[in-house]
Simulated scan of single mutants.
Amino acid sequence: MKLPPLRAVQCFEVVARLNSFSKAAEHLNVTQSAVSHQVKLLEQYLNEPLFNRSGRSFSLTDAGSRYYHEVSHSLTSLASATQKIRFGEPGHIRLALYSSLAVKWLIPRLESFKHDHPDIDLTLNMIVDESDFSERVADCFITTNPPKGAFASQFLFAEKLYPACGKTLWQQLKNQPLPNELWEHPLLSVQYSESEQRTADDWQQWCESGGLTLPTNVKINHFSHVILAAEAARYNLGITLIDDFFIASQSDNQLIKLPLYGVETGTKFYFVYKKSRAKQSDIITLSRWLQAQWAEVKAKTS
């Protein structure tokens, strides 16, 4: 496929569309002589005059008119295809995030987002810890491992875990001395790694944060995901450590946050997108909405 000099084609299209060499130069942010040079270059390449020139006035030749309609359509298609690759389909955003955030926090709020922004179609995609930050996966991400370089990151919140249990178990605990009474019930621990050795690092960290010692004889049940531990706690199978957003997002109030201190794990969550899409209105809207939602959670749980 042999293409004409594209810069020259662009200059010709703008001159023909604006019917002015001076306006075309201003639009392209170049000199008028540079525009004239590019148009002459294209005419030489085509071996055909594109404009009838008479003093300061000019008009398209028949060949120029036919060529303008063809290249105008082609340049519009090229610009549209480029915009879709750089910025995605207008009004449609694919957001990739962890399943725990999606299921327990974002999905319950989607109705609110759709009500406030009916022109944006938000699609969710699940990711694991080491996500492929590619547009094949999503247009933007919520992650704890923000990439560098071509990506922009906006801080959302820092994870802070609190002991929580189901309503029935809470009835047994609420009049008992805490935290000592915790050790009389199963502790639900989350361990994401596939190591065969079972540990309770989350509960160890919580105890150390409060100057406590985790008893060696306490019963610990292990789960591979926080959603599983949270559901087990809801059904009164023990006490788990969970972030505020889980508790704040539930509609049935079956998970009770115990009146005990929380521990910051050091894990931080970020909203991530390509820097080239920083001015995309849909991305800006979603970013502001996410910030507002977490501010609301913080206000409810502080």
Rank of each mutant, 00 (worst) to 15 (best):
Q10I: 10
V15H: 11
A16R: 08
F21E: 03
F21P: 07
K23S: 09
L41G: 10
L46I: 12
L46V: 07
E48H: 10
R53A: 12
S57K: 05
H69P: 04
E70G: 12
E70N: 13
A79W: 00
G88M: 02
E89M: 08
E89T: 14
I93A: 05
S112V: 11
H115P: 00
M126R: 15
D132A: 14
R136P: 01
V137A: 11
A150C: 05
A150S: 15
E159Q: 11
Q172E: 12
Q172T: 02
Q172R: 12
L178Q: 15
E184Y: 00
S189L: 01
S193Q: 09
S195C: 07
E196G: 03
Q197G: 01
Q197W: 05
W206F: 06
G211V: 00
P215D: 03
T216L: 13
T216D: 12
S224E: 13
H225S: 11
I227G: 02
N236K: 02
L237M: 13
L241R: 01
F245P: 00
I247A: 10
I247F: 08
Q250Y: 04
S251W: 09
Q254T: 02
T267I: 09
Y270T: 05
R277Y: 00
A278W: 01
I284Q: 09
L290Y: 05
Q293M: 07
W294K: 03
W294F: 05
V297P: 06
